[in-house]
Design a protein around this nucleic acid. Structure first.
Lengths: 142, 142
DNA sequence: CAGGATCCACATAGATACTG
DNA sequence: CAGTATCTATGTGGATCCTG
């Protein structure tokens, strides 16, 4: 391992934790989980509040997302036996730690989305495969 | 952060950057992007190396993922006009910054996957809806 | 008010076969 | 070797209707 970096092992960043990160991405990679988490923030909101605060979400998707979050202990659901019913949701400490982790990604997004967009535009203009003399490489900004 | 805030606005963590984070999650939330990124690490690998290093990936999925990564300037593709053909891939500086951001999530995954699994098991054992006296709340470890 | 149930549409992924 | 093309399967999300 000392000389050159070949070896073609499974990973360079993590040894075998790839499965864990896949699980997390499967959980938060869906359309609404992060949005619900961020909308909740540190507040306590009702189901109808979330519906109103998250544009485009359907009842089904909000319910599904909340149940998944609750199941994993990321969000706490508190139902009051009143009439009309009242159900409040808030992010648990565990969920808040996830919010923090996601925040890194969010910061990357804010900082680099313009660059990504520029690269995408470049590739559309150039076309993906222009041959050069011997080795062909696509241009990119960044 | 000083007093209290309700207001039920769009977000508590980010004001209107939710769209950016959604875009990033759409990009890396798929099945192979992060795996390719992590497999590449800081190395330069050929297509066949990646195929061999990423268990379960199909040619199509690897190609699709690599083209998307290249398009966004996260991975650089270098093709040599030789016979037999040789194509090498490496993560760009921009891509490496994304790797760093993803690493936060990876660390969260490693640290908390057991807790999440425990919560999940709890909910299966308890069942999701046991009513208490007045307010019903699900148990969770965290 | 806060969901549960059902049906449907679409995007994504996988298998397979073929090619420059 | 390094892809492309095509087809199919499955999961994910959305709309709608119904209920405690």
């Amino acid at each position: 391992m000392a000389t050159e970096r070949k070896a073609v092992g499974p990973c360079a960043m993590w040894p075998e934790d790839s499965a864990f990160i896949r699980e997390v991405l499967d959980r938060i990679g869906d359309k609404w989980t992060v949005l619900v988490l961020s909308t909740l923030g540190e507040r306590t909101l009702r189901y109808s509040d979330l519906m109103a605060s998250i544009p485009g979400v359907s009842q089904r998707m909000l319910t599904v997302t909340l149940k998944a979050l609750e199941r994993d202990g990321l969000v706490e659901r508190r139902a009051y036996a009143e009439v009309p019913p009242r159900v409040e949701y808030r992010v648990t400490p565990l969920g808040r730690s996830l919010q923090q982790a996601v925040l890194q990604l969010s910061q990357w997004a804010v900082e680099n989305h313009a660059t990504v967009a520029a690269n995408r535009a470049l590739h559309e203009r150039i076309g993906v495969g222009r041959a050069g003399s011997r080795a062909e490489t696509s241009a990119s900004v960044g």
